[in-house]
């Protein structure tokens, strides 16, 4: 069931779109912003967009940044593409995995972080890089990663 707030934001988004279904990605993001992920049952959302649930599911399962399972409070997207790979991506990933106690796709037991790979973040001259939620972190080192995790843990970010 959509909440009143969700419904209002969704209606606004649809009103701005050329056709209802063109709003589908934004609408999925509205739900995700409020709940952290997009649940399995898409019937109501799909109806709002004049789509069948299957059509909307085909969109929702396609995008890497539409999450279909609960994620942690913060999502870490670490770039595993070629320039970062050359610049020691693997050590950064190993360090993150060790610090968080999770592999790719995992969520730390305290529910703070989910770790995911992402395609080239377009900051290859500052490799290796990662994003935490909306913020880009560049020229990573293991010490820098520790500082970043610590800041989020302390709730400073």
């Amino acid at each position: 069931m959509l909440t009143e707030g969700e419904r209002r934001e969704i209606e606004e988004e649809i009103a701005k779109s050329e056709r209802k279904r063109a709003a589908s990605v934004e609408v999925l993001k509205i739900v995700q912003k409020r709940r952290g992920w997009v649940p399995d049952d898409l019937d109501e959302l799909a109806a709002t967009l004049d789509m069948t649930p299957d059509e909307l599911d085909a969109v929702a399962t396609f995008y890497s940044l539409v999450f279909r399972k609960p994620v942690g409070r913060h999502v870490i997207l670490i770039c595993d593409s070629v320039s970062c790979w050359v610049m020691e991506y693997e050590s950064m990933r190993e360090h993150l995995s060790e610090r968080l106690g999770i592999g790719m796709g995992g969520t730390s037991t305290d529910g703070m972080f989910t770790l995911l790979p992402v395609a080239c973040l377009g900051a290859c001259d500052r490799a290796p890089v990662m994003m935490v939620d909306e913020v880009l972190y560049t020229n990573l080192t293991t010490e820098k990663i520790d500082g970043i995790l610590e800041a989020y843990r302390r709730g400073n970010m």
């Binding site: 056709r19 209802k20 279904r21 709003a23 589908s24 990605v25 789509m51 890497s64 395609a119």
Partner: peptide, 24 residues
């Protein structure tokens, strides 16, 4: 239009499908 990941969205006809709200 803000997308949601996937390199293939940059291929111009996939991009148009994405803009139409279809699987890209």
């Amino acid at each position: 239009h803000l997308s949601a990941g996937r390199y293939i969205c940059g291929e111009e006809t996939a991009l148009l499908n994405a803009l139409e709200g279809k699987r890209a």
